[in-house]
Design a protein around this nucleic acid. Structure first.
Lengths: 336, 336
DNA sequence: CGCAGTAACGTAAGCACTTACGTAATTGCC
DNA sequence: GGCAATTACGTAAGTGCTTACGTTACTGCG
């Protein structure tokens, strides 16, 4: 192509073309996997998914676009039922955009597609090696030959067939432990000092005192984590359970919970408790079905500001589990 | 920025944003240096400059855009006097777009700006190192901080102050010798076998037989070249003179011509001739002012199909040079 | 407390492309 | 040599952004 000979001068044109091809490739992947959304919506929808309800200007600033762009897209998404808008009671100028429950459910299933796109794109970029121009050239070649699209397809097929694995702590996965937890903490609460300490150095704060950290992986991709903290001899806390948005509903949370309980039992612990919040409805359901029962009073001397739920593990109480798990059956099929 | 955390998934958005920022940065550079054109025109204008007159679909295919895009831009450029359109007599559907003389003159001066943009962009891309994502991040940082714009400015300032240097043959510059000549040969004629041989391996075809190759450089950038070929003992040919489009009118051709004549004289040659074409008006003027006189008959046994001009160097005939050079004075000031 | 300055949007219009479509000329093929 | 298929390319309309502008609400400062 003529522009290749023009070096960096044609970068603008080529970047734009590659950008558009990437949107198109992503859209093909969405369509093929039965997801009805447009790649251009990704920044806004993903922001709302990860960070929770937000105003137009907040989103615009975060994704690097102008507020009219977000405003117009929001109107369209609102018309299609993806998002809702309510007034901000503290500031009448501002509106709060929020994913509809339906959209939230849809997005929670997109993990494998996103992961497939990410892998294919990373592979294409890496093939170029060295410079930006080389990487761009490799991208263009992959797009022109259809290799990018084929790669997305095959990665997605692999991910859909893959099973969730539970793996023990690995120091090189410490950043995943932090990333996954920071994501939901920022969304639902704020990072407290206890969190920062534990997440920043899990080795010394969790592993060395006699606790454990488990990772849920799907085809090598870390998509969830959970920790068992040793509080006192025989007393353990289940904590830092996090599953990546986009991979929810595949059973990772259940597997992590079972894994942590197994770790607790391997240590012959006496007491296993957890602290959580009423706001985290689906998580509480999971804990209940896993054998945790609500404790009437809040835990004395809790280290979390946010904790208004205190649950304790009672091995006998796993009866509800099978019943709760049943309606999830079709999800498991999709997930595996 | 939020999108940075999304890895390759946000590549489309980021590429588009960087693309638009690059257009904007280039436009700032054009405006600051007093050039009245839009960065979006670059692919079309540059194609016409380098390859010569072309049809809408040919350009569209070459620059990777759709024909309506080129068609619409062509209409705009035609209205502004940048290009003209005439009918293709062999195919009534097709039109032939051609740069106006004025546009050609403007584009011939853009070399330093283009070079400055290229250098700044290359530096930004290199700062990221490794992967496409890193390079992109570096780009975004440079754009946000204004460093890219500042770099373009300072590179341009350097280039405008720089003088043209004439350097002897260096084997690592052989690709420049080829590139510069292929560019104009493809535009004005076609590559003949003689050309391919000489350009592909100048060492054995030019240097070793006792000839010479000179390069014109501006601040380290190779922008022109010219060769002295040894035809027989004492008989030399001036050939393969080429100056990059974008750097014309800065006196590089004159300097190369003088340099080659000096090489000829250093070798105590008897005869120095050249072959050219009537179609290359400005080049013929240069040769005339440099002391070459037209020979009435074509050269017997010419190796070029395209040659319809045969000139011979006569040392006394350099009188016209000063007169011809005079109106160029302001150009030299700009060029240095 | 009043009121300039600023912030949060929404709307309109523009821009650089695209896809869709129509028309006229050329090519290919029996 | 005739006619279907293809090609060149203009026009219209759509898209995903942008800039420009206006309205309403909030904020800070004398």
């Amino acid at each position: 192509m003529f522009l290749h000979g023009q070096g960096e001068l044609a970068l603008g044109s080529r970047l734009k073309a590659v950008s558009e091809s990437l949107y198109a490739a992503a859209n093909v992947a969405y369509r093929e996997t039965g997801h009805d959304l447009d790649a251009h919506w990704f920044p806004v929808l993903r922001y709302l998914q990860v960070r929770g309800p937000a105003s137009v200007t907040e989103i615009a600033a975060a994704i690097g676009q102008t507020h009219p762009a977000v405003s117009q897209l929001a109107a369209k998404l609102r018309a299609q039922g993806w998002i809702t808008r309510r007034a901000d009671r503290s500031d009448a100028r501002r509106g709060v955009l929020e994913l509809s429950a339906d959209a939230e459910r849809k997005l929670d299933r997109l993990g494998p597609v996103w992961c497939a796109i990410r892998r294919a794109a990373a592979a294409a970029a890496a093939r170029g090696g060295g410079t930006l121009l080389d990487a761009l050239g490799a991208f263009e070649a992959d797009i022109a030959s259809g290799r990018l699209a084929a790669d997305i397809r095959s990665h997605h097929a692999r991910l859909k067939k893959a099973k969730i694995d539970i793996a023990p702590y690995r120091s090189d996965w410490a950043p995943h432990f932090e990333r996954l937890n920071v994501e939901w903490l920022q969304r639902w609460f704020t990072l407290e000092d206890v969190d920062r300490a534990v997440l920043g150095d899990p080795q010394t704060h969790v592993i060395e005192p006699g606790g454990a950290i488990l990772f849920a992986t799907l085809d090598g991709e870390v998509i969830g984590t959970c920790a068992l903290l040793k509080e006192a001899p025989g007393v353990y806390e289940l904590s830092k359970m996090a599953v990546e948005s986009g991979f929810r509903g595949f059973g990772a949370g259940r597997r992590l919970l079972d894994g942590v309980i197994a770790e607790f039992e391997r240590r012959r612990g006496r007491t296993l408790f957890l602290e959580s919040s009423k706001r985290l409805g689906p998580a509480l359901q999971l804990y209940e079905s896993g054998g945790f029962v609500h404790h009437p009073a809040p835990r004395p001397g809790s280290h979390y500001q946010r904790a208004d739920v205190y649950m304790v593990y009672e091995p006998g109480k796993t009866a509800g589990r099978r019943a709760k798990a049943a309606p999830r059956k079709h999800l498991r099929v999709v997930g595996r």
